[in-house]
Simulated assay, not measured.
Amino acid sequence: MTIFETERLVVREWTESPGDLERAYDIYRRPETNRWLQAPNLPLTAPEEAAVMLRRWHDRFAAYGGRYGLWAIEVRESGLVVGTVMIKPLPGPDESVLTDDIEVGWHLHPDAQGKGYATEAAGAAMRREFAAGTAAIFAVVAPGNTASMAVARRLGMTPVGLHSDWYGGKELETFVATARDFARG
């Protein structure tokens, strides 16, 4: 199911098709992808783990009817999935409990970085979420992840320093955009 489209990209649900499973495994098995995520169950160590991960993502956000999720970023011209973009409630200090704060994020295959895909997909995801009535969207980035910090800045997000309000209390570089400021940008 297509979530939204941009000039170059189709953002859609990840599926359990062989191509999506193979690509998800290839993205999330890589040290270059996972070094900044510090997420449980990552990196993936076997191809079958990709299906489990994608099911977990889908199940966690199914009740929101497509408003929130972690979605595949597909290049329209080639059909190649280059990564994931997300809009979702941030998990709090107890990571099993979601907060009312909304996060935008992105994970790209190393071969797809530096082409503007993260900025394009995340910007469209933010416009969509602001149109749904959200007042502020956060990006949280592991300290030292200069590439993701640059994406947040390109999106017009304002850096607000290190915060430990989410993801189990980890200190993360935090950026924010408000609907009002984003509309002017």
Rank of each mutant, 00 (worst) to 15 (best):
E173P: 02
A124G: 15
A118D: 13
V81N: 10
G116D: 10
A142P: 00
R153E: 15
R180D: 15
V52T: 13
M53Q: 14
G65Q: 15
R180M: 08
A46E: 14
T6K: 09
L9S: 01
L54F: 06
P110K: 03
R180H: 11
I73P: 02
L172H: 06
M86A: 12
T15Y: 00
W36M: 03
L21C: 01
E48K: 11
S78E: 10
A51Y: 06
V11P: 06
P143S: 06
V81W: 11
E171G: 14
L37G: 06
W71L: 12
P47R: 02
Y117K: 13
M149K: 09
A118R: 08
E74W: 10
Q38P: 02
W57A: 02
E48A: 12
A147S: 09
G92Q: 06
A142W: 10
T134G: 11
L108I: 14
I87M: 09
E120I: 07
N41F: 13
I3W: 08
A112T: 03
R30D: 10
R23F: 12
F175L: 02
A121M: 12
T33D: 11
Y25N: 01
A46V: 00
I87R: 00
W71Y: 10
E7I: 01
W57C: 01
G168C: 06
M126A: 09
G114Y: 12
E48V: 04
R67F: 07
V160L: 07
E173Q: 12
R67C: 08
V75N: 06
M1Y: 07
L9D: 08
M126G: 05
A62F: 11
P93D: 08
P40W: 00
